[in-house]
Write a protein that binds this DNA or RNA. Sequence first.
DNA 1: TATAAAATTAGACAAAGTCTAGAAAAGCAC
DNA 2: GTGCTTTTCTAGACTTTGTCTAATTTTATA
Lengths: 134, 134
Amino acid sequence: MNSRENIVNKLKSAGVTPTTQRVEIAQILFARPQHLSAEQILKMVNKGHSTASKATVYNTLGLFAKKGLLREVIVDPTKIFYDSNVSRHFHFFNTDTGVLTDIPVDAIHIDKLPELPQGTESSGIEVIVRIKNS
Amino acid sequence: MNSRENIVNKLKSAGVTPTTQRVEIAQILFARPQHLSAEQILKMVNKGHSTASKATVYNTLGLFAKKGLLREVIVDPTKIFYDSNVSRHFHFFNTDTGVLTDIPVDAIHIDKLPELPQGTESSGIEVIVRIKNS
DNA sequence: TATAAAATTAGACAAAGTCTAGAAAAGCAC
DNA sequence: GTGCTTTTCTAGACTTTGTCTAATTTTATA
Ligand SMILES: [Mn+2]
Ligand SMILES: [Mn+2]
Ligand SMILES: [Zn+2]
Ligand SMILES: [Zn+2]
């Protein structure tokens, strides 16, 4: 399913040249829907057979996000989470454990959206439910 | 209205000893509803008559947040915003300008809240509408 | 006023992320 | 394939936000 061939095609379709490093990073990310930080990905890549530098990992994650292959989730003040699930959904963030979990889109209903400030357009609505262990 | 006396009482009511530095920081913050970063506050304090160290500013903001006098808003991966409006409301975040703006609570209607993961309790729902200049 | 506890400080330190300049790889024309 | 250009990758310096430490100062209390 997420064979190397599939990943290569996914990158090509998004207009991203499938280099060794990018394919390696993509294989880790797109293996399943998950939330990973840049430093986690850096470590995971360098445990595998090929390697990538810090700069390449950061550049690649930024590129993937720009091309819509990844979603950046900003909930933890110390690091960005990269979400390999780019379909519309929301998040729980457990402040005790630092774990991010998905909330299916239909589990929350939002209506009566606010009027945007003059001269701006929306680039997405985020809902974060902060939770703690009880 | 927000005289020194008022600020001192506000801190005392929250169980915070009103030291010189804390009162100075509080006067800046509670002058009006606003969203400020720690570094902005540090600069503002040290332009005034009294001063405070970096460690004290960070400690004070953390303490105020813990005591419910401030709300931390995490939308910008590079810094925390401290919101002097602790009443329930949501935010626009303009990714082009870095400016955070309030959305009144009644401008968004959320129902059908998700079930929380086992063994957790909610500590607040955040809605962030990311916007960009059009 | 004496003592203990709480708060402040300078500056070292940590961690995430950015930048630079050179090396390597990829793409392209022939 | 060869040469040439453009893109990508890299190590490591650097930046920024934020934390920590150990000594000093302030505040609370008896
Ligand atoms: Mn940070
Ligand atoms: Mn950061
Ligand atoms: Zn997600
Ligand atoms: Zn606000």
